[in-house]
Simulated assay, not measured.
Amino acid sequence: MTRTGRPREFDKERTLERALELFWSRGYGATSIQDLVDALTLERGSLYGAFGDKRRFYLDAVKLYWEVYERHLITTLDTTPLLPALREILTHPARLDELISDMGVPQGCLVGNTTAELVPHDSEATKIVTRSYRRFTDIVADALRRAQAAGEVTDASSPEAQAQLLLYIVQGLSLVSRAGLDRSAALTAIDTAVDGLRA
């Protein structure tokens, strides 16, 4: 159906949130401009005017995803004891069945998906994911440093090395989850990793 008339008013922030859900469930390459127009009930002109092309729209969605995730990460890890909070962070990819949206099931971590789909060929995407991974390890290392000082977490290795290991675990789980995940086996592996941090 051809849309005519004046472009409709819309909430830009809410529109970006809805686009994030669509990109997250389908991926960058599999989401067309027409998919966005249909799902967001926007005129093409309004979409281009507000967000630019599909690539710019996607990268803005990835940035929003990380902003929300980082706030959650900081809040979750600002607790004592730390190890149960770390377990919650690590189990997120193993709980995808709890994250169903009306646009489909989100697949893994959007930052990890961007790494798989756009890095290293897109320099801006590479900068976004590199910064996101660095922020993850910085935030987690700070929390681990506090937990080491409190005697909860082993000091056999540095907080930075421990945080890097946890990044590899959470991103590996996110990637594997896209192909289907044995939830029980994943949770057992996570428990093993968390136990390995215990003092």
Score class of each variant (00 low, 15 high):
residue 13 E to K: 13
residue 13 E to A: 15
residue 14 R to T: 14
residue 14 R to D: 07
residue 16 L to H: 05
residue 17 E to Y: 11
residue 17 E to L: 07
residue 17 E to A: 14
residue 18 R to T: 13
residue 18 R to W: 05
residue 18 R to C: 12
residue 18 R to V: 09
residue 21 E to I: 00
residue 21 E to F: 00
residue 21 E to W: 01
residue 24 W to F: 11
residue 24 W to K: 03
residue 24 W to M: 08
residue 25 S to V: 15
residue 25 S to T: 15
residue 25 S to Q: 13
residue 25 S to Y: 02
residue 25 S to R: 10
residue 25 S to C: 15
residue 28 Y to K: 01
residue 28 Y to A: 01
residue 29 G to R: 14
residue 30 A to S: 15
residue 30 A to Y: 06
residue 31 T to D: 05
residue 32 S to E: 09
residue 33 I to E: 08
residue 35 D to V: 03
residue 35 D to G: 05
residue 35 D to Y: 01
residue 35 D to P: 01
residue 36 L to G: 06
residue 37 V to Y: 01
residue 37 V to R: 14
residue 39 A to L: 06
residue 40 L to H: 06
residue 40 L to T: 14
residue 42 L to F: 03
residue 42 L to T: 05
residue 43 E to F: 11
residue 44 R to Q: 11
residue 45 G to W: 08
residue 45 G to N: 04
residue 45 G to P: 00
residue 46 S to T: 10
residue 47 L to D: 02
residue 47 L to V: 08
residue 47 L to T: 04
residue 47 L to I: 08
residue 48 Y to I: 08
residue 48 Y to H: 14
residue 49 G to M: 02
residue 49 G to V: 06
residue 49 G to R: 07
residue 50 A to H: 13
residue 51 F to W: 11
residue 51 F to L: 06
residue 51 F to I: 04
residue 52 G to A: 09
residue 52 G to K: 10
residue 52 G to N: 07
residue 52 G to V: 03
residue 52 G to T: 02
residue 53 D to Y: 09
residue 53 D to I: 04
residue 54 K to S: 11
residue 54 K to V: 11
residue 54 K to N: 13
residue 54 K to Q: 08
residue 56 R to G: 11
residue 56 R to Y: 03
residue 56 R to P: 09
residue 58 Y to N: 05
residue 59 L to G: 06
residue 62 V to T: 07
residue 62 V to L: 03
residue 63 K to C: 05
residue 64 L to H: 13
residue 66 W to K: 07
residue 66 W to L: 04
residue 66 W to S: 00
residue 66 W to A: 03
residue 66 W to N: 09
residue 67 E to D: 15
residue 67 E to Y: 07
residue 67 E to T: 10
residue 68 V to M: 07
residue 70 E to D: 09
residue 70 E to V: 12
residue 70 E to P: 00
residue 71 R to C: 06
residue 72 H to P: 10
residue 72 H to S: 14
residue 72 H to D: 15
residue 74 I to S: 08
residue 74 I to V: 15
residue 74 I to Y: 06
residue 75 T to N: 08
residue 76 T to V: 10
residue 76 T to F: 05
residue 76 T to C: 05
residue 76 T to A: 07
residue 77 L to S: 03
residue 77 L to T: 07
residue 78 D to C: 00
residue 78 D to H: 03
residue 81 P to W: 00
residue 82 L to T: 03
residue 82 L to A: 00
residue 82 L to D: 02
residue 83 L to K: 03
residue 83 L to V: 09
residue 84 P to T: 03
residue 84 P to W: 02
residue 85 A to T: 09
residue 85 A to W: 02
residue 85 A to S: 12
residue 86 L to I: 11
residue 87 R to P: 10
residue 87 R to Y: 12
residue 87 R to W: 08
residue 88 E to R: 15
residue 90 L to M: 11
residue 91 T to A: 08
residue 91 T to W: 01
residue 91 T to G: 02
residue 92 H to S: 07
residue 93 P to Q: 07
residue 94 A to T: 04
residue 96 L to Q: 12
residue 97 D to I: 10
residue 97 D to Q: 12
residue 98 E to V: 01
residue 98 E to A: 10
residue 99 L to N: 09
residue 99 L to E: 14
residue 100 I to V: 15
residue 100 I to M: 13
residue 101 S to C: 03
residue 103 M to G: 02
residue 104 G to L: 02
residue 106 P to L: 00
residue 106 P to D: 06
residue 106 P to K: 01
residue 107 Q to E: 07
residue 107 Q to K: 15
residue 107 Q to C: 07
residue 108 G to Q: 00
